[in-house]
């Protein structure tokens, strides 16, 4: 009796289980799996508009010879390589300063530094655009303090436009990452610090040799999410600089958008560019997986 009942119960549980997960799975199939496979197939098609034909690896050859693509790839990688480390460093410093329980106005500081996360990417890009004009409030302030003598061409000079994008993303996301570190730090046993303090280890050394090693998983996680986010950078560049001046802030996502919706659509080639992002993300995720497994 018992085995038959167990079998019945098992089947019943199985059917109910499927009823719970099927709606979501069907939707994901339609709006995720199907499109991602379709764009893989598309990336082997060449031609413009509706006239397309199978082109094998033509698109990949085109990638390697496309100066605008190479520029977009270079820009995206520059943003990554400079912005992510600066932001994570700043976020760790701020979190460790805010982690002192006797800090005066701690809640206020935390809320203020977290506040940028509340704005939409479009809204803050617009605000930054209005602040970083040639006569804008930032240049006025910098000249008033005496850091620079002449106004900086934040929106007109290729180097400074890149810098502006980096400053903007850092402003928007540092507080977000800080929250992760702060919560990880609060889970670290306080007695470890107490012991280190009694042994006369300085605050800086405590941060470097105690806190950071213990927070490795969170740091890794935030690094990977930030990297994936930066790889998809679109809203900021489209609203702040439109990829300019002379493509100096063009990102891969903006290039895909332009290829698909601005110029005569060349879907196949745009799909190939999008798979470059997929490829980089997969490598990064694999690295994260390897590192976190090695730790265990």
């Amino acid at each position: 009796m018992s085995s038959k009942r167990a079998e019945q119960l098992g089947r019943y549980k199985n059917i109910t289980g499927w009823m719970f997960v099927t709606p979501a799975l069907v939707l994901m199939g339609i709006f995720m799996i199907y499109p991602i496979l379709w764009s893989l197939w598309m990336s082997f098609q060449t031609g413009k508009g509706v006239r397309t034909k199978f082109g094998g690896f033509d698109n990949i050859v085109r990638l390697a010879n496309d100066p605008i693509f190479l520029k977009a790839l270079f820009n995206t990688m520059t943003f990554l390589a400079i912005q992510v480390p600066i932001m994570i460093f700043l976020a760790i410093i701020m979190a460790s300063l805010l982690n002192k329980s006797n800090l005066w106005a701690r809640g206020w500081f935390r809320t203020a530094i977290f506040l940028p996360c509340v704005t939409s990417l479009v809204a803050y890009s617009i605000l930054f655009k209005s602040m970083f004009g040639i006569d804008g409030v930032v240049n006025q302030t910098l000249m008033f303090i005496g850091i620079v003598d002449d106004p900086i061409g934040w929106l007109t000079d290729p180097f400074w436009a890149k810098t502006l994008i980096i400053i903007s993303i850092t402003w928007r996301w540092t507080g977000y990452n800080m929250i992760f570190y702060l919560s990880a730090m609060q889970n670290i046993d306080a007695s470890i610090y107490e012991a280190a303090r009694i042994d006369g280890i300085s605050a800086w050394r405590r941060l470097i040799s105690l806190t950071i090693p213990m927070m490795k998983p969170v740091i890794l996680f935030t690094t990977v999410t930030s990297t994936i986010g930066t790889l998809q950078l679109f809203d900021e560049v489209n609203n702040l600089t439109q990829g300019g001046p002379s493509d100096s802030t063009l990102t891969l996502s903006l290039y895909i958008f332009n290829l698909t919706f601005k110029f005569m659509p060349s879907y196949g080639y745009a799909a190939t560019v999008s798979y470059v992002i997929v490829f980089i993300v997969v490598i990064l995720a694999f690295l994260q997986f390897r590192v976190s497994r090695d730790r265990k």
Binding site: V21, A24, M28, I36, L231, F234, T260, V281
Partner: peptide, 25 residues
């Protein structure tokens, strides 16, 4: 279902840029 769940997690890596053209069509 566990296998499908792993698939669900894997889709977290898919950047929107890689979906938008087929989705648009």
């Amino acid at each position: 279902r566990e296998r499908l769940y792993t698939m669900v997690l894997l889709t977290l890596m898919i950047p929107f840029a890689a979906l938008m053209i087929p989705l648009f069509i």
